[in-house]
Design a protein around this nucleic acid. Structure first.
Lengths: 199, 199
DNA sequence: TTGATTTTAGAACATTTGTTCTAAATTTGA
DNA sequence: TCAAATTTAGAACAAATGTTCTAAAATCAA
């Protein structure tokens, strides 16, 4: 692996573990055994590192979305699979989600990029709802304003579940996934058709 | 107002406006027209300022909780009033919610204090649900595990709604309140008794 | 009033941090 | 093989930051 990618890899690990506050470019360079000068040869500014990591995240998310449009979700098992894959992605780039607002004000292009991601996800989730209604999984009588709130809820919970978990239960690995999955699914629960409703 | 309180007031305003990243003790001192040395006479360490602000927040929240136990929520109008008051409090200390995880790792007593707050709110919300069921506003057939998820959802949305809004719509003032209120209420919506259900 | 205490300003210090610069080492490509 | 391009280490710099120190000013208490 070339130095540039290695920097990104080590930076991601450090940011996730120690938080953006305490990680410096010297820190990253020392951890991978190169000089600070060398690091700044590859990434002139610290923001460039963070921005590159953010672009990795959006690229990975795009893949998930693309996969979702090729293989639409038609039942609860597939919904769970999708929830799980988004969880792994979020956890992989957890420092971004934990410092989202701060990063957005620090590096404006991150906020712009996030806006675009939100639009994509809105489309994706609208389709997801429609599919589940058509597949007779969800009830068809959901008002549009309520649907808006539901979509916002989904975004909010998936983007900030990690932050919330960090402050409270601090669940890890499989345990975290299970609770995350349940929290996301409980948004859908009340709108399931009676037949499959485990209320 | 004495200098100590003035420092807290100015620090809060600056943290909210410019974010904890760019605000320094010199910054705060300069804004209020005192010397940095003087500021550090009153608060030896930066953390002491932030911790004091966090304690203001928990004290204010305690008041709301106490008021809630003295005047229980029995209908949707009262629920809205409670939602609104929590919104104003969160917005007043927005920088804390925006940097919650970072502050929690930086200043451990903040995380401990937050844990206690969460316990209080859990009790409070359980009572709130029970009250609304008894008052025939909510349906009585909500499973305990689902209730847990609902409570977590409520916490998550109230604590991170501001962060989410900051990244997307960036609504302000009354407009923000309206959407926040609707997002919180939409958690309750599916469990309302049919009579008052505006699905 | 006067002596003690508290508050304040401002200089000073140590450390950190991002970044640049230079020269050497390494790699590449013809 | 050898010159050009690249990568690298390490010193160096400038700015920022938290904090301390000292002495003066203000306040308080008897």
């Amino acid at each position: 692996m070339n130095t540039k990618n290695k920097i990104l890899q080590v930076a991601l690990a450090l940011y996730n573990q120690e938080g953006i506050r305490s990680v410096t470019t010297r820190h990253i360079a020392a951890t991978m055994g190169i000089s600070a000068g060398n690091l700044h040869y590859h990434f002139k500014h610290t923001e460039d590192i963070i921005l590159a990591l953010f672009e990795q995240l959006t690229a990975a998310y795009d893949k998930i979305v693309q996969n979702l449009s090729e293989h639409p979700v038609l039942n609860l098992a597939e919904l769970e699979a999708y929830i799980d894959s988004s969880f792994y992605l979020i956890e992989q780039y957890r420092f971004i989600f934990i410092n989202f607002v701060e990063l957005g004000t620090w590096i404006p292009s991150i906020r712009e990029s996030y806006q675009k991601l939100v639009s994509k996800r809105e489309q994706e989730f609208s389709r997801l709802f429609t599919n589940l209604v058509n597949a007779n999984v969800l009830r068809p009588d959901i008002a549009p304003t309520l649907l808006n709130s539901l979509v916002r809820q989904l975004f909010l919970i998936s983007d900030f579940w990690i932050s919330s978990n960090e402050l409270t239960a601090q669940l890890r690995g499989e345990e975290a996934l299970l609770v995350y999955r349940q929290d996301i699914l409980s948004i859908f629960t009340p709108y399931l058709r009676q037949r499959q409703k485990p209320l």
